[in-house]
């Protein structure tokens, strides 16, 4: 049986030599967590199923630093590596793949140029293009929106881009469906309402998107405890959960979390502990 995936996310500040992993709260305040490839190796040892590297600086001159981070990581870490943040074109994607990435994650560029999803899928395979969606709740009815019932009332979900700084007016559920049709391999779905809060994943958002598409959905935003991961993987059809701070600051190891999830009835790949 296919296991659910646990994916540590490394938000990388590439403005310093070698880069460093940081963690933002609600897309803002920053805490320092470590050197990217050292954390990556540690997560692989702990049993992480995949890793995502997000360039949160994402300016043009930083792209080479990210390529170096991936090159260095891929020499010793043999699990799937996704690179996101600031990938705007097929040529940016190629730089990431040549460095050793297995997938690229695109958000702003896909919303501005949806054809990029198909271009990446055609050149590197449909598994290679992760479409990242940052979604925010908008309470109330609006014509043409997919409205979801939540404990706080009915809402639809709006896509944002530019790292959460601007809104698009685009319905996140409709966009996920379009992304699948265009050749996305995964949807990485982040709740902007929950990101950095440690209040748990947005269950209604994750359920609505994962029930609307047939490709895997990675739940993201709001993870503050292993219980939150258990909740989102049991109550929705998400295929994977992404978490950052609970792993970066040593609160839990990936192995701790996966054992807890397996005991809770979620199918997990566990490694023999040495």
């Amino acid at each position: 049986m296919l296991a659910k995936r646990i994916i540590p996310c490394l938000d990388c500040d590439l403005g310093v030599p070698r880069g460093r992993v940081v963690k933002g709260v609600k897309f803002k305040q920053i805490r320092y967590a470590g050197v990217p490839w050292e954390l990556a190796e540690e997560y692989d040892r702990q049993g992480a199923d995949e890793l995502i590297f997000l360039d949160i600086t994402a300016s043009h001159e930083r792209r080479e630093t990210m390529a170096k981070v991936i090159e260095k990581t891929s020499e010793n870490v043999f699990i799937p590596l996704t690179v996101g943040g600031g990938i705007k074109s097929l040529s940016d994607a190629r730089t990431a793949f040549n460095a050793g990435a297995d997938k690229v994650s695109i958000n702003t560029a896909a919303l501005k140029n949806p054809g990029l999803i198909g271009e990446i899928a055609e050149y590197f395979g449909t598994q290679a293009c992760v479409v990242a969606i940052d979604a925010k709740r908008r309470y109330g009815h609006e014509r043409g929106r997919v409205v979801v019932d939540t404990p706080d009332g009915e809402c639809w979900f709006e896509c944002s881009f530019y790292g959460g700084r601007e809104f698009t007016g685009i319905d996140a559920i409709q966009w996920a469906i379009e992304a699948e049709e265009r050749g996305a391999g995964d949807i990485m779905l982040t709740s902007m309402d929950r990101d950095g809060t440690k209040d748990g994943f947005d269950i209604e958002l994750t359920a609505a998107v994962s029930d609307s598409v047939n490709i895997p959905v990675i739940a993201s935003g709001g993870c503050g405890s292993p219980g939150h991961i258990l909740e989102v993987l049991k109550e929705t059809n998400a295929s994977a959960a992404l978490a950052a701070s609970i792993f970066h600051f040593g609160e839990y190891t990936v192995a701790d979390v996966k054992e807890y999830l397996r005991k809770g009835g979620v199918y997990m790949r566990l490694q023999a502990r040495s």
Partner: peptide, 10 residues
């Protein structure tokens, strides 16, 4: 099943 199969299987 969800297609593609993407992830760890035994």
């Amino acid at each position: 099943v969800r297609i593609p199969q993407m992830g760890w299987n035994e």
